[in-house]
Structures are given as structure tokens and as C-alpha cells.
Computed example of a mutant assay.
Amino acid sequence: MNARVERFTDSLWPMLVALVLLIAGWSAAKYLYAVEDYFVPYPWTVVTAAVRIAPELAAATWLTARAAVCGFVLSTLAGSVIAIVFAQFRLLRLGCFPYAVILQTVPIVAIAPLITYTRGPGFESVVLIAFIVSLFPIIANTTAGLTSVPRGLQELFRLNHATRWQQIWKLQIPYAVPNLITGMRTSAGLAVIGAIVGEFFAGNSSRGHGLGFMVPQKMDRLRADEAFAAVAMATLLGIAMFAAVSLLRSTLLRRWTQ
């Protein structure tokens, strides 16, 4: 336990130092260049604004978090299934994998308006956008893990007359778990980005609005401090999702690292 606390402390203080330097640089730049408050506020002004609009900020964060988590879970499930299919059929992988790459190369700002136009604004459209953005890392990393099983292990399973399903379930999938977790760590952050971008275009609905809709709304009303508070919450949400997947990684992969 003491060793874990030491490792946590050793990794925490550099982040705190970087945060202090960031806030100091932010404040100094605003003072030196005389930037107006309606454009860039002081850090303590952002904190005050966050406290002032805490109920609205909490509701928006909860809605964005739900959309990001739903998109992330869907991308993990769908990406894993697609990767398993790709790993079993080489010709299908060669034919379809380039189209999966398109999900990563096409800008989400080009896809989001199309989804909003066809499905309308609302939570479901935001989830769909988050799903599309976070899907490719799962497919790419899991496919790489499934197809990199050593030939010796494959031959061992064949010598013991293992069925195709047994090879998938007891050999390929366990071997690909580290790759899957790596893809999930990337997708967790992308899901938050997808949810935020999706809410820019499709975040206004009767259920309320998320952080992505809140930021431009506050800037249009010249409430930069509240907009920056929403950006800060979006950042914390991304960090929280990344940390959750990292915790899952350390738990599941403990036997790989020992």
C-alpha cells in the first residue's frame, strides 16, 4: 500500500506543478496584454463563475458524461466484434479495414451536421457522433492483438484439436486484451471529444443541454467566465474517463505485468 501511495504521489506533484505554472502563465499573459474579461477571464474568475452556475454546470456535465459513456461503451462492444470478424477472415479484413480508417480521417465537424440533419438534434444524435469518433481505435488495436498471436500457440491449440471457437475464446481474445485496453484508453478521450462536438450541432433538446452546447451559448452572451468553466468541466470529464480506463487496465492486466 505504501508503495502505491508513493507512486501516486510521485506522479501527482509534477501535474500540480504544471497546473500552477499554467495558471501563472495564463494570469501573466492576460495582465501583460490587457485582454478583456469578456474574451479571456482570470482563472479565479472562472472558479467563481463555476460556483455561481454550479447547478447548470452539473446538469450539463451529467448529460455530456452520459452521451460520452454511451458512445464509448457502444464503440467498445461494436469495435471488439468487428475486430474478431476481421481477425477470422483475412479477405474481409483487407477489403473493409480501409473503410474503417475513414472513420478516423473524415473530420467529425463534417459528419456531425449530416447526422443532425438526418436524425435531428438530441441525445441520440450526440451518442451516435461520440460512437463514430471513438470506434476506430478499438477496431485497430483489437484487430492487431487478435492477429498477432504467436504461431507456436496456434499450432499447440490445433494439435489439441481445439475448435475455431475455442481458439478465439481461449487464445486470441485473452491475448488481445492488452491491445483492447490500449484502444479503450484512446477511445475514452475521443468519446468525450465526440460528445462535445456533437453537442455543438445536436445538443439542444427538451432534455436540456450539455457542455458542448453551453460553451458557444455563453460566449455569444459575452459570459466568457462561464464558458471557460464549462471547458474546464469538459477537461475534467475527459481526465476522469481516461483515469477510469487506466484503473481498469491496471486491474485486468495485473497478471500480465507481474
Rank of each mutant, 00 (worst) to 15 (best):
M1T: 10
M1Y: 07
N2H: 12
V5H: 11
V5W: 11
R7G: 09
S11W: 04
W13S: 10
V20L: 14
L21H: 08
I23C: 12
G25V: 03
A29L: 15
Y31T: 12
L32I: 14
A34H: 13
V35Q: 09
E36M: 05
P41K: 02
P41G: 05
W44P: 02
W44V: 09
V47E: 03
A50E: 05
A50V: 07
E56D: 12
A59F: 08
L63I: 14
T64R: 07
R66W: 08
A68W: 01
G71N: 07
T76E: 04
A78P: 03
A83Q: 05
A87M: 08
R90S: 14
L91V: 13
L92P: 05
R93V: 01
C96L: 15
F97E: 15
F97N: 13
F97Q: 12
F97M: 15
P98V: 06
P98G: 07
I102V: 15
V106S: 04
V109N: 00
A110M: 08
A112H: 00
L114V: 13
I115H: 02
I115D: 03
I115W: 05
E124N: 14
V126H: 01
V127W: 04
L128N: 01
A130C: 04
F131A: 05
S134N: 07
P137K: 00
T142E: 04
T143E: 13
A144Q: 10
G145I: 07
V149C: 03
R151W: 02
L156K: 03
F157D: 03
N160R: 13
H161L: 14
A162G: 08
R164Y: 06
Q166P: 02
Q167D: 12
Q172P: 00
I173G: 09
Y175K: 01
P178Y: 02
I181F: 10
T182I: 04
G183H: 04
G183P: 10
R185P: 08
L190E: 05
A191G: 03
I196W: 03
V197N: 02
E199M: 03
E199W: 01
G203V: 11
G210V: 10
F213P: 06
P216G: 01
Q217P: 03
M219I: 10
R221H: 12
L222V: 09
A224Y: 00
D225C: 09
A227M: 05
M233E: 07
A234K: 04
I239P: 03
M241P: 05
F242Y: 13
V245Q: 05
L248G: 08
R249M: 12
R249T: 15
T251W: 15
L252G: 03
